[in-house]
Simulated scan of single mutants.
Amino acid sequence: MIYIDPPRWPAHNTVFSHLVSDTSLDELHSFAADAGIAFRAFDLDHYDVPARRYRDLVARGAVEVDGGTLVRLLIRSGLRIKARERSASLVHPLLTRWEALLPGNRELGAELLNRWGEPDRRYHDRRHLLAVLEAVELLWDGPPPRPLLLAAWFHDAVYRGAPDDEGQSARLAAALLAEAGVPVPEIRDVQRLVLVTAGHDPAAGDPAGQVLCDADLAVLAREPAAYARYVSDVRREYRHLDDAEFASGRRRVVRGLLALEPIFSTAAARERWEEPARRNLESELAAAAGNPAGNPGADSGKAGRKP
């Protein structure tokens, strides 16, 4: 069933309603497409629709409910996305982490969070930043060293889907951390670690590089539904590519990851994530084989050079 709440949420000089399904996202997407609602209006578990569409959507079959009922229905359905999965909800907790890491540099932390919150990002956003920071803390034995955490903050600070994203991120780290008074040896270590994430191939004697790369790849081991959302988010980051172009490249990336023996460099990551990551990648590749031109979980050499 499709539900809609009254248009009471202000933005962009109008007010918006929320359109949800209590059955499946497929049902929601199908209803929205039939109603001519652009996919860009989809926000993880609902569509934002302007007030002028409200009566039309009700006429098309959306059931009118109040906002509280709509949220309860969404929660009960299991489709509700938690706050930590919403990039906009993470500014305060991430800024708190930043201030503990580099006190007295709140503006620099805010600048980085603005970068991680750029509107074209759908996977490489603040959610990914928080996930990498938490994975680093999980994998490192004791408090992680500051250069490692700073590298996590900067590793996708520049993200355009271009071959030199990591190089630009490393250069940005050098410039901004120098202004913040971080010692040169630390800055060089941060730059080195950021560049290691380009190929996810850290040296055997580089524990910080191994942990950062494993943290960056931890998404591969998510539960199947969460993995599917990650793949869909990556596809949305490369919506300028057509399906066939995106799919062929993603297959190359997935095959490349499966060819790694092992995928993860640290023992802790291998124990936790190796098996589920391989299952997810193999399932994605099998699905792509059944739908080679349009599989939503596909990503180009450009589009999916990295997960």
Rank of each mutant, 00 (worst) to 15 (best):
Met1Ser: 14
Ile2Pro: 02
Arg8Gly: 09
Trp9Tyr: 15
His12Gln: 14
Phe16Ile: 00
Ser17Pro: 07
Leu28Val: 01
Ser30Lys: 14
Ser30Asp: 14
Ala32Arg: 02
Ala33Thr: 10
Asp45Tyr: 04
Asp48Lys: 11
Asp48Pro: 02
Arg52Pro: 03
Arg53Thr: 01
Asp56Pro: 01
Val58Ile: 06
Val58Glu: 07
Arg60Glu: 04
Arg60Val: 01
Gly61Phe: 05
Gly61Lys: 13
Ala62Asp: 05
Ala62Gly: 08
Gly68Asp: 14
Val71Leu: 13
Leu74Glu: 11
Leu74Trp: 07
Ser77Met: 07
Ser87Met: 04
Ser89Cys: 12
Ser89Thr: 12
Leu90Asn: 08
Val91Arg: 11
Leu94Val: 06
Arg97Ser: 12
Glu99Thr: 12
Pro103Asn: 12
Leu108Glu: 09
Leu112Pro: 04
Arg115Asn: 05
Glu118Ala: 14
Arg121Tyr: 09
His124Gln: 11
His128Trp: 09
Leu129Asp: 01
Ala131Glu: 13
Val136His: 04
Trp140Gln: 10
Asp141Trp: 14
Gly142Leu: 06
Pro145Thr: 04
Ala151Asn: 08
Trp153Leu: 00
His155Ala: 01
Asp164Gly: 10
Asp165Lys: 05
Glu166Ala: 06
Glu166Thr: 03
Gln168Ala: 04
Arg171Asp: 07
Ala173His: 08
Ala175Met: 15
Leu176Phe: 03
Leu177His: 09
Glu179Lys: 13
Ala180Thr: 07
Val182Asp: 04
Pro185Lys: 06
Pro185Met: 01
Arg188Ser: 11
Gln191Glu: 13
Arg192Asn: 06
Val194Ile: 10
Leu195Lys: 12
Val196Asn: 01
Val196Leu: 10
Thr197Met: 10
Thr197Phe: 08
Pro207Ser: 09
Ala208Pro: 05
Gln210Ala: 13
Leu217Gly: 03
Val219Glu: 08
Glu223Cys: 04
Tyr227Pro: 00
Ala228Arg: 12
Tyr230Ala: 06
Val234Phe: 06
Tyr238Val: 03
Tyr238Met: 10
Arg239Thr: 04
His240Asn: 07
Ala247Asp: 02
Gly249Ile: 00
Arg252Asn: 11
Val253Met: 11
Val253Ala: 12
Leu260Trp: 09
Ile263Thr: 07
Phe264Ala: 02
Ser265Lys: 15
Glu271Cys: 05
Glu271Tyr: 09
Arg272Val: 03
Arg272Ile: 06
Glu275Ala: 14
Pro276Gly: 11
Arg278Asp: 10
Asn280Glu: 09
Glu282Tyr: 12
Ala286Cys: 09
Ala287Gln: 09
Asn291Asp: 14
Gly294Glu: 13
Pro296Val: 03
Gly297Cys: 06
Ala298Phe: 07
